[in-house]
Amino acid sequence: MTCPVNGPRAISEFAYGGEIRPMPDPTTCSDDAWADYVFNRNGSPGVKREWWCHTPSNTWFVAERDTARDVIVRTYLYAGDS
């Protein structure tokens, strides 16, 4: 995987942080919607936006990964949407 700051590295230098999923507004959402956010994950194959961390440098970034083809499409620093 290519860390946006440190460049291409063996996958063993990285930790997976889960798919980037928008948090529902806890003050307004139902218990069911909240439980869905906490416990359910998207299992279908396709391109996903995920949190990844380059552990030796503690660099968190976003990876777009095609889980059907097992290909990393691109990586970039988180810019603040989601």
Partner: peptide, 11 residues
């Protein structure tokens, strides 16, 4: 400067 892992240790 290279931030990486050597022998399993962050270096």
């Amino acid at each position: 400067v290279v931030l990486t892992s050597m022998a399993g240790v962050g270096v």
